[in-house]
């Protein structure tokens, strides 16, 4: 394991524990980077994020946009010659970034996830229209992308009322923090 002077061995150990990945196995062949459909939206290529961990560069890894832009489509992990579960690495880093309260590189994506879970907390199921409205409101950007929203309403792809579950206590149980 390469570790820069002052690099964090804790990060390596923690992400190894959460993802089960041996970071020495990455060859940096860049198959993941070449296959990733979303690489243009990322600041570091997937293998570069692994490199950051190998170097123990915790701050860079937790603050990078890649861990948020990665949607977990597994294109990378299914073609990785070393069968590394790369999205699991991104998961570990994302959760650590939230825990540590570092500046989130992609606040819109975080905002979207939060609004999705807010409707699940309320109804037990997601409610797309409310997610979209609250997401746009929080972003203070109600009018961009309006055409798509209208098209969806017109084609009845956004139900006006939410579908709800009956057992409210179950939702409390699900979201109860230990």
């Amino acid at each position: 394991m390469i570790n820069q002077d002052g690099g964090s061995q804790t990060l390596v150990d923690e992400i190894k524990a959460s993802s089960g990945i041996d970071f020495n196995s990455c060859l940096h062949c860049k198959t993941c980077a070449n296959g990733c459909p979303f690489i243009e939206g990322m600041d570091y290529a997937p293998n570069a994020v692994i490199r950051l961990i190998q170097f123990g560069m915790e701050e860079e890894a937790l603050k990078c946009s890649t861990i948020w832009v990665c949607v977990g489509c597994n294109t990378c992990s299914s073609c990785c010659p070393m069968a590394i579960d790369i999205p699991a690495v991104m998961d570990g880093l994302r959760h650590k970034a939230i825990e540590q309260g570092v500046k989130i590189a992609e606040p819109d994506i975080m905002n979207f996830h939060t609004e999705v879970l807010n409707t699940v907390k309320k109804y037990g199921r997601t409610h797309k229209l409310e997610i979209m409205m609250r997401y746009k409101f929080k972003k203070m950007d109600l009018f961009s992308d309006m055409g798509v929203g209208l098209k969806m309403l017109k084609k009845r792809k956004l139900d006006l009322t939410p579908s709800k579950i009956q057992d409210k206590k179950a939702i409390e149980k699900i979201f109860r923090k230990k």
């Binding site: 459909p37 979303f38 939206g41 949607v71 819109d108 994506i109 979207f112 999705v116």
Partner: peptide
């Protein structure tokens, strides 16, 4: 693209 359809 899943949820990037909204956020990106």
């Amino acid at each position: 693209g899943t949820y990037l359809s909204v956020a990106k």
